[in-house]
Design a protein around this nucleic acid. Sequence first.
DNA 1: ATAATGACCAAATGAACAATACGGTCAATT
DNA 2: AATTGACCGTATTGTTCATTTGGTCATTAT
Lengths: 210, 210
Amino acid sequence: MNNGQIQTGKGKEVILMSTIDRRKMILAAATQSFAQFGYKATTMELVAKIANVGKGTTYTFFRTKEELFDEILRKALQEMKEVCERAIKREDTFDQNLIRVLDALLEFRADHELFVKLAQEVRDIGTVQALEGIKRLENLVLEYMRQEIEAAIEKGEIKPCDSRVISFMLLKFYIALTTEWSQTHEPLNKEQIKQYMQLLLSEGLLAKPN
Amino acid sequence: MNNGQIQTGKGKEVILMSTIDRRKMILAAATQSFAQFGYKATTMELVAKIANVGKGTTYTFFRTKEELFDEILRKALQEMKEVCERAIKREDTFDQNLIRVLDALLEFRADHELFVKLAQEVRDIGTVQALEGIKRLENLVLEYMRQEIEAAIEKGEIKPCDSRVISFMLLKFYIALTTEWSQTHEPLNKEQIKQYMQLLLSEGLLAKPN
DNA sequence: ATAATGACCAAATGAACAATACGGTCAATT
DNA sequence: AATTGACCGTATTGTTCATTTGGTCATTAT
């Protein structure tokens, strides 16, 4: 391999990238393009152009467009999971952890944009691969939340309940507050989103008689 | 006018409808057709045929197809509002009333194919008039809920909050429980739905023990 | 005279076809 | 051995044109 070598060709100095760097370039280009244009509008030729490689080169690293998409999706999902795990402090209360995870996710814009774009693509033109991606995200989130809720029940922090239903509803709330509300109204800011989440999840709407 | 007269023409007995009856016939025909075929697939010629009138006649009562649709929509929305109002018992608590209203709405929707059909049309082909109709339905429901929430805040039954956001979230929650959950899981029964609703209102979804 | 009607018109729609763009391959090139 | 862009078959998009549809109005029926 010619990793990092500098060679002279036809009077021009050319810096050859290592195959590893090339792979990274392609991944970065595709990541950007998928997040910006969605699955369908991202063409392999465009990815190659952004990455400054020939179209054929992308196919030496990724057998198909779907495989390339899959790797990017995996990375994004992995990253999100890590963000969640970093936000959780085992010694803290469930409530506090929940808010911190929420906060971390709201703050973590990078991967968010990919998923927002994919969700939009599903609504607008119903691309199957975009739908696939959204479903994988939802399943991951649901399963993660379900486990956390189960653990909290075990520890006696919250009342016993069907953790599948509750995690499902939690996700619906999050989506409603962060994206659905914005489609017909002024978007809510992070602080408001957190407040409403807390109100609906751990306080209830009914006024308590003091 | 020839209201209700019976006349003899060319050996055949012909019953002439009054103009008022004709209007009703057209309205009934259109109501049936919109509910059965949706906005787009309902043609003015079909409406005329079902109503047993010439196409031109429909235009003596309704200036355009949209105007005809609008009158039918108005009627249906009005009917729905009355269903809501009948569901509310002033002496009862907010949460009991809320559940009764939402239940009544769900039932109303199930019996009135028009809205189901329009929702499907929006999903399938995105007809703008069908979307318009669905939006008017949603806005009516949201506004109705919003007023009830405002009143409940006034009475001190629930905590002060932005009634627009809360009505939005309550409706989302109800839809998630009744229809979205069923798309991937066993449907929840009425009792379960009521319990989750009460949990959300009184303690929050993630209630603490005791 | 008035109400009703269907032939008629322009605009919208959709089917059929042509042109383009795309994912993926591979012989030529470096 | 790695890279590349011309190339291929197919999927998508643009275009054309016949049909349909919302809406009008001269004619008909009463």
